[in-house]
Design a binder for these strands. Sequence first.
DNA 1: CTGAAAGCGCTAACAA
DNA 2: TTGTTAGCGCTTTCAG
Lengths: 340, 340
Amino acid sequence: MTRVRKTPSKSVSIEDVARLAGVSITTVSRVINKFPSVKEKNKVMVMDAVKQLHFTPSIFAQRLATGKSNVIALVIPRYEGVFYSFYALELIRGIGTLCAVMKLDLLLHLTDSHSPLSIRGAGGIIFADIISNRPQLEEALAQGIPSVVINNYVDDLNVSCIAVDNVGGAEAAVNYLISLGHKKIAHITGDVITQAAAQRLEGYKKALKKNNIPIQKDYILNTDYSRGAARAAAEKIFKLADPPTAIFIGSDSMALEAMNVASEFGKKIPQDISIVGFDDNPSGLYGPVGLTTVRQPLIKMAEDSVKELSRLIADKKAKIKKVSLPTELVVRESCQPFSS
Amino acid sequence: MTRVRKTPSKSVSIEDVARLAGVSITTVSRVINKFPSVKEKNKVMVMDAVKQLHFTPSIFAQRLATGKSNVIALVIPRYEGVFYSFYALELIRGIGTLCAVMKLDLLLHLTDSHSPLSIRGAGGIIFADIISNRPQLEEALAQGIPSVVINNYVDDLNVSCIAVDNVGGAEAAVNYLISLGHKKIAHITGDVITQAAAQRLEGYKKALKKNNIPIQKDYILNTDYSRGAARAAAEKIFKLADPPTAIFIGSDSMALEAMNVASEFGKKIPQDISIVGFDDNPSGLYGPVGLTTVRQPLIKMAEDSVKELSRLIADKKAKIKKVSLPTELVVRESCQPFSS
DNA sequence: CTGAAAGCGCTAACAA
DNA sequence: TTGTTAGCGCTTTCAG
């Protein structure tokens, strides 16, 4: 048995490998980068040396030499609501998984949207939502860093974006409720500083208008996407003199909370009140009553953003792309026809 | 008005800035790195040039030159359960936030635990849980990369770890139930491939033994931490010929699910059955009955891991540290004394 | 098929 | 206070 010496504190370089293998560093580099033109014998020697020394090429030297970076940064605005959302986690999961598959390094940056972005060295940036961190996006664009925005449709900037058809999704939800005979439909919004929440509210209003149902102010309750706010909103609704027969809610987790409140008020779902959420959060599946909701393709959005960014990085002058992904109404058991 | 020329496709380097500012690159470097010894006038000139050219120093060149990397990698095993957990999100949030504050770059790596880690260039690694990805940890250690493991107490490896006293927490939960007069106490575990779940089970058994309560096999139900599995387990429990009067459950989200199931079975909480969870997930606060639970300091664990890693990076021969963070029983309304 | 040498963009002595 | 210069570890011509 050969005893393995303790790894020296200084990290091993390509030169050490070359010396041990008895070849030039160029050859080592070729082996590392899988050039076909290396004699089998040398290749083996090099690979042995690599293993023996626990050699890993310095990513920094590589990047400096090649000028290429396969780091992509994911910037998430760190405002209170986001981080408790199903949304953020799904996004991270989707993007993280695809990055692992595509051998991209994922730099995660939670930003307070004030301080300038410190994503230096990233080959490209994915902005998850644009709230008050628009300047950061603009700066990235100015620097010529390939960027893509998700969950926001950005009209006025020359940047690729992958959004979700929130207006359409909300409309579909409300139309469904109307088709069931509901006329008194409330809406608990998410945080309307987000484009998503604002658009869902828009869709809600649009559906009502198209069906000649007057919009009632006290049927619209704003929240910050938190369960606490949802609870407060739901309580307000149930205490209304003329309570609605259906509620469209800006997120599933809030809808779940509203369902709790309903039962506390002695209201049965869907018999006494119909509820539609938004997200298709798996949590909505459980519980006595499956939650009818609007599915938004978060994972697809996540994956598409990585693909789009890769495209942009590969071809700096590629044309930007703006897409709005369709949503889908998922009917479960939380709604029922309204009969007066 | 001066018209700004289109940013050249080639990225600007320190040399460009030096030329425009009329100084040497060293001076530019000094300004960038906030050396105090630069004449005000030059400093201004340089900063102007930087702004004008949208210059950002190449992180790769910097790292190559200094040999320092302030990238830290967070490795999360990508097995089904983790990613739906409150745990993962809190961790990411905690670590991500602290990294932003400490000006560290956070590389997020979701790993399938088979493929070798490709976290090259990271100054240090945080392993969130060690499941089957132990070889990756060992490899990192062999390469001399500072590492810290969280949520697992690793006895047999020379690595810093920050764990949670799961055994103690579980014991406290069960002891509390026993102090309330319960003797028939079931346990719905998390995924016992995780150390956390295994230890909570251990704590459960320990408390029972110490109080001379026999351990019943059919009172112990294993899950994978998912709500679906929790539902199945809860249903099994309620169908038991001799159902328990209390349940200790491995996570709050599962506990919430069990509460749903209970109400479907016509059981009131806490009158008919007492429930204790684990996590102190804010979701447990809502709903008609506040969930009594064991709080684990996730954010503290997250933050401590970053600090510990920084320490290790700063001083490569720093002694490793193994800690187990205390938990805390949070009593809310989901338990009540048992009276036969 | 292999190696020598010139950078990649920056920092850190060392001089001036 | 500022500039000159020698690397950091790797890739990439260009010869051999």
